[in-house]
Computed example of a mutant assay.
Amino acid sequence: MRITAFAFAMAAVPGLAMADGVGITPDMMSASVPTATGMVEISRNQDSAHRLEGDWTLTSRPCPNFCIQPMVPAPGVTPVGELEVIAALQDPNIVVIDGRIRPEFEAGTIPGAVSVPYNEAADRLGELGCEVDFDGFICEGDIPQVVLFCNGPWCGQSPTAARNMIEAGFPAENISYYRGGMQNWQGLGLTVVPGGAGG
């Protein structure tokens, strides 16, 4: 009974309950990431009543095309979550790639992500330091780590990009896959920007 009374008393003190806001982790309220248009602050939506709308709330779309993707789209690829994506965005040696088609990227993406549509990924390995070869690319030496993402656990665009990149010569151990993609990113209320404006 005393514990309950104490809890009610503490909740009644203005500013004491919920004073910390909606953080990314207990020690991180936001993260600054470099983008093509300058620094962008990634944080979570502070409105605790906020809800997603539109396609991001759909749970049951027909398979194919909307089949649940594996956590590891190809042997050697490393699955990652939101915290690893944020850390990657802050690391100049890692490229975060939005593997969705260009209109989806332009509608909204993770700040700092670059657009490499899944159907172009295998042909654009030169942008990642690989050299053109007769059978694809030679990807040796100082090539970056990449993080691929698309629309969410049911989106096959970035898994296809990963497999195509590997087949063209990019090493699987240099690829990470954020399976949660835009659906999980937005579900957590994290910052989204139009592609080309910090994307």
Rank of each mutant, 00 (worst) to 15 (best):
Q69I: 11
G81H: 08
M71F: 14
M71G: 14
I68Y: 06
Q69D: 12
E84F: 08
T78L: 01
V80P: 00
M71W: 12
E82G: 01
G81R: 02
R61T: 13
F66R: 00
V77A: 03
L83D: 09
F66N: 00
R61M: 15
L58T: 12
G76I: 12
P64K: 06
I68R: 06
A74N: 11
P73A: 06
L58R: 03
P79V: 11
T59W: 01
A74W: 10
T78P: 02
S60D: 14
P75N: 02
C63Y: 10
E82S: 07
P62R: 05
G81E: 13
E84C: 03
R61L: 15
L58N: 04
N65G: 05
P79C: 14
P70K: 07
V85A: 01
L58Q: 03
C67K: 09
L58S: 04
L83F: 11
W56R: 01
E82H: 04
T78N: 02
P79R: 04
A74G: 14
V72L: 07
T59G: 02
P70N: 13
V72T: 13
L83E: 12
P73F: 02
T78D: 00
C63I: 15
E82N: 02
F66C: 01
L58I: 09
M71C: 04
Q69N: 12
I68P: 03
T78I: 08
T59L: 11
P79T: 10
P79E: 11
P64L: 14
P73W: 04
P70H: 11
V80Q: 00
G76L: 13
N65T: 10
V72P: 01
I68E: 13
C63E: 10
T57A: 04
T57I: 12
P70M: 04
L83R: 14
V77S: 01
Q69H: 07
I68N: 08
I68Q: 10
C63G: 12
A74Y: 15
V85K: 02
P62F: 08
V77C: 00
V85T: 02
E82W: 01
G76F: 08
A74E: 15
W56T: 04
W56S: 01
M71A: 15
E84L: 06
T59K: 11
T78H: 03
V80Y: 01
P70E: 07
